[in-house]
């Protein structure tokens, strides 16, 4: 699984890879990773789960948001080797046949333009609803502030999240079960 990599100095022995077990979207994966591989790069480059996007790669934009052991994090700042044993949910793991209620709400409210930030926005919104701390529009904005949308679809994103919070609570819970 591991690809050969040159060390930056261009010298020395081939890098050691480390065995890691991850459960990604419900499927257990036995992997070997170089210690400097981020969870984001592992998902995209090794597991071909390219729905999770690389935006800034520095934890500033939220495009890489995934849910690890029930919590949303920036996968660009997480070393995969540190997540040994973790359960990871990516945008690909949300829907089972039909769209997840948050995905459906984003479509219904036109909550994107170019779409690049959307997987991160949706993963963040799914976690926000699970966390149960945001209710008002101000609170939704505050709790979504780790996800940047350079097209500026913010008002529609808030509409979509608010819609799920207020009207689709039951279907959301059914989908989560």
């Amino acid at each position: 699984m591991a690809k050969p990599m040159l060390s930056e100095s261009g010298s020395s022995a081939p890098p050691e890879t480390i065995p890691v077990t991850l459960t990604v979207n419900g499927q257990e994966r036995q992997l070997r990773v170089a210690p400097w591989t981020t969870l984001l790069d592992l998902l995209r480059e090794e597991l071909d789960l390219t729905g999770t996007k690389k935006g800034c790669d520095h934890g500033q934009c939220g495009a890489c948001t995934v849910i690890v052991d029930g919590k949303r994090i920036n996968s660009c700042l997480a070393l995969a080797v540190q997540k040994d044993g973790a359960h990871v949910t990516t945008i690909e793991g949300l829907s089972t046949g039909s769209l997840h209620p948050v995905q459906a709400a984003f479509v219904e409210h036109d909550a994107f333009q170019c779409g690049y930030c959307t997987p991160g926005q949706i993963m963040s919104a799914v976690a926000l609803i699970e966390e149960g701390r945001a209710r008002s529009r101000d609170e939704i904005r505050e709790h979504m502030s780790g996800n940047i949308c350079r097209c500026g679809a913010y008002s529609n994103i808030v509409d979509a999240v608010e819609d799920v919070l207020k009207n689709k609570g039951s279907s959301f819970r059914e989908a989560a079960e």
Binding site: G59, T65, K71, R72, I73, N74, A78, L128, S145, G146
Partner: peptide
Amino acid sequence: GASPQLRNA
């Protein structure tokens, strides 16, 4: 401080 994602990590 930070964002929900960063505060979780």
